[in-house]
Design a protein around this nucleic acid. Structure first.
Length: 567
RNA sequence: GUGCCCAUAGCUCAGCUGGAUAGAGCGUCGGACUACGAAUCCGAAGGCCAGAGGUUCGAAUCCUCUUGGGCACGCCA
């Protein structure tokens, strides 16, 4: 709608004011917060006032005459300092119904003006242990961003970068060896920077016999490599299982080892060398990142000869671009924010515009239980895993909660709250709305009332929908595609959540407001038909929104227990 | 010390590419079930948008400074 009007306004400016595209000042078109300001409002007249050296209200009057004759426009007013407020006819809004019901699951899908091949890298947790609950936020933000970008016309691939070559995996293997020896009653010393979590002991127990042959001696390098492989494989399998349980899918798992063995590293060094952007100093090899917008040089090869994480990650990012992606989106924990200029500098050195890489920083999550912080000791390896959270509150609630806040704000995640079947828990509010809509349709069928097929919407007399709240809901439905678009463009999945809360809220309001004098399942056949189509459309929009969030849309909510059992 | 993020109702947060009288949920108080699901709804109270300057027709939104929080500043990832 907004885009339609924007287009129409540009056209009017071109024809009536002989303004070229380039001469058009930026102007707003929005859904005003207040109903008295119409269905859509624009500040175009005010924006034009300065360049045209004419009074805003005078220009507004001029535009008003044109806007009045636009299809669907019922009223057009000039208000305040020069706002133009447009009111559309009820019939115009009723046309949302065929759009929703005929496109079904595709309602809200848009074609991007400029579709891009996007690669979105997220989670990318080290394969050194299970996913932490905090990974959940990045996982769901990345997942929903991918869904949103796809739904708005882009080609998206989701990728998980596995750091399977670094020192961390070696540390884990050493920790596993220590636990193994411990299990066998052999002496040993806990490795420096070792992993303390209980899962390390599990890994030691699960080591295949072939990998423990070195006992009671110490593992040689080949033994250790084999144990590293085993650990990576096991941990990755666990991670994949947890992501699947969380509704997060990946198209590809990229491996750091592959980057190292691909020859890409050599190419990276050769190119940097050619540019004189490499410097050997203090036994290490440095990239002159400060020449490309970063603060200072960064180490690529450590004095022990191994690559830094940055070195392989840069090669990996260059490889993504080589694969033809026009845009790279990385979802990182905010504690990595200092890393952004470094990576952009790296891309710049290779002639890529740094804007191609977009980093969505996801802020920290603090875990609470009934308002109290959950105590965790990272040192002792006591962490709350994503799996535990999913098992306790369910994937739907966990996803919804992570999506409730803008990614760039810190948030609290209260386990008790996420489990509550109550008003405090917004997941159930939205899901209940869907269940309620389903329930109405089920009840209609039960009573033998004719439930119209969505495909018959063009035959129905939609004029029967004349309750102000019914029209209001039509307007909200019509806004769905815009809500999706702004969520996608703003990399802000929470906007979809807010939209759904509004949609459901207005429906609940309508439901109770009409329950007494005019329930949905009442009235003459034409009216009933129109309302049942309206209900189906609402349900469809709700389903589409929930699908974007990866949250289920249950047909009925499980019954609450009448009372809590004895404690 | 330097850089990034944040500061909006008692609490948790939207709104931030400048627009009209700043919103929602929870919590508090008061109401609505012989009814399509009360897991819902209605109403009330609650604000110097951290503070101070600036930019302009117009600022929660943009700029500067201050204060108060978080994070990052390693040859860790």
């Amino acid at each position: 709608m907004i885009e339609d009007l924007r287009r129409q306004l540009r056209e009017i400016c071109r024809v009536r004011l002989s303004l070229s595209e380039a001469e058009l000042p930026p102007f707003s078109v929005e859904h005003p917060a207040r109903a008295e300001h119409g269905d859509l409002a624009t500040n175009l007249a005010m924006a034009l006032a300065r360049p045209l050296r004419r009074a805003p209200r005078e220009l507004a009057g001029l535009l008003q005459a044109e806007l009045r004759s636009l299809p669907g426009v019922e009223r057009c007013e000039v208000a305040g300092p020069g706002f133009i407020n447009l009111y559309y006819s009820k019939d115009h809004w009723r046309q949302v119904l065929p759009r929703v019901l005929e496109t079904g699951p595709d309602f809200g899908r848009t074609r991007a003006d400029r579709p891009e091949r996007v690669q979105i890298e997220f989670v990318s947790a080290n394969p050194t242990g299970p996913l932490h609950f905090g990974h959940g936020r990045g996982a769901v933000v990345g997942d929903v961003l991918a869904r949103l970008l796809q739904f708005t016309g882009h080609t998206v691939e989701r990728e998980f970068y596995v750091n399977d070559a670094g020192a961390q995996v070696r540390n884990l293997a050493l920790s596993v060896v220590f636990r193994l020896r411990e299990l066998r009653g052999l002496a040993g010393e806990f490795p420096a920077d070792g992993y303390r979590g209980a899962y390390v002991i599990d890994l030691a127990r699960r080591l295949p016999a072939a990998l423990t042959k070195f006992l009671p001696g110490e593992p040689g390098e080949p033994d250790l490599r084999a144990i590293m492989d085993f650990c990576v494989e096991q941990n990755l399998a666990d991670i994949q299982r947890d992501l699947a349980a969380f509704g997060v899918g990946m198209d590809r798992y990229a491996s750091e080892r592959e980057v190292l063995s691909s020859g890409r590293m050599q190419e990276v060094f050769a190119e940097l060398e050619r540019q004189g952007a490499l410097e050997d100093r203090e036994g290490a090899r440095w990239f002159s990142a400060e020449r490309f917008g970063d603060e200072k040089p960064r180490v690529l090869v450590k004095s022990d000869g191994s690559h830094t994480y940055f070195a392989t990650d840069l090669a990996y990012h260059l490889d993504k671009l080589r694969r033809g992606f026009e845009r790279l989106i990385d979802v990182w924990g905010a504690d990595h924010h200092g890393y952004v200029p470094r990576m952009k500098a790296g891309l710049k050195a290779f002639g890529h515009p740094p804007e191609k890489l977009e980093v969505v920083l996801v802020q920290m999550v603090s875990l609470l239980r009934g308002g109290q912080p959950v105590v965790m000791s990272k040192r002792a390896g006591e962490i709350v895993t994503l799996r535990e959270v999913i098992e306790e509150v369910g994937a739907d609630a966990a996803r919804f909660f992570f999506l409730l806040r803008s990614p760039d704000g810190q948030m609290e995640f209260d386990l008790e709250l996420a489990k509550k079947r109550s008003l405090e828990n917004p997941v159930f509010y939205v899901q209940y709305g869907h269940a309620r809509l389903c329930s109405i349709l089920a009840r209609a069928a039960e009573r033998g009332l004719p439930v119209p097929d969505p495909g018959s919407v063009r035959q129905a007399d939609l004029g029967c929908l004349d309750h102000p709240l019914e029209i209001e809901l039509l307007k909200v439905m019509a806004r769905f595609p815009e809500a999706v678009l702004s969520a996608a463009q703003g990399r802000a999945p929470h906007l979809v959540v807010y939209y759904l809360q509004e949609l459901v809220g207005r429906f609940h309001h309508y439901y109770t407001a009409t329950a007494r004098e005019s329930p949905i399942l009442s009235g003459d056949p034409a009216r009933l038909t129109a309302r049942l189509l309206w209900v189906q459309a609402l349900r469809q929009v709700l389903q589409n929104g929930l699908a974007l969030l990866g949250v289920s849309a249950p047909e009925r909510m499980e019954q609450l227990p009448e009372e809590e059992g004895p404690a």
